[in-house]
């Protein structure tokens, strides 16, 4: 399907994100460093996405809109995303028999936002968590 692709998302911690987190999770700076997904050059072209454009990331566990970022290095089929409340929306809460919880990688569908939705706000994620 044009404009959509399955990718393996791997999460990581970035120093700029950690700085913004220390200065307040509800800040624009934290959102700008966290609500992003780095995509391979070929994949981003295939999706018809431009650097910085909002894309939808969706798994069986949830959905968020984040900004696409063009990676300098090639990594087809792989996407990298800072570990944050945005990535946590997409991770399965299924706990393995050993009790281990894999927060590091998951499969997700990345697609263009047809309605040009804005990046999901941290306030919306907080509301989702507190919803009855």
């Amino acid at each position: 399907m044009a404009g959509a692709k399955e990718v393996t998302v791997v999460t990581y911690r970035g120093i700029f994100q950690e700085v913004e987190e220390a200065l307040g999770m509800y800040s624009d700076g934290y959102r700008d460093q966290s609500a992003i997904v780095s995509l391979d050059g070929g994949d981003i072209k295939e999706l018809g996405v431009e650097d910085g454009q909002p894309v939808i990331l969706e798994t069986g566990s949830g959905k968020v809109v984040v900004a696409a970022k063009l990676s300098e290095d090639p990594h087809p089929g792989l996407a990298f995303m800072p570990s944050s409340p945005w990535s946590a929306q997409l991770v399965s809460g299924e706990v393995e028999e050993s009790g281990f919880l894999d927060l590091k990688s998951f499969m997700a569908k990345v697609s263009l936002s047809p309605a040009k939705e804005a990046v999901t706000s941290i306030e919306e994620i907080a509301e989702r968590i507190k919803a009855p």
């Binding site: 999770m25 566990s61 949830g62 570990s83 944050s84 409340p85 946590a88 929306q89 991770v91 399965s92 809460g93 919880l101 927060l103 994620i125 989702r128 968590i129 507190k130 919803a131």
Partner: peptide, 14 residues
């Protein structure tokens, strides 16, 4: 943990 755990677990915690 509410910021780190998967959303379904964060909702349980909340």
């Amino acid at each position: 943990p509410a910021a780190v755990l998967p959303a379904s677990l964060a909702r349980k915690l909340a």
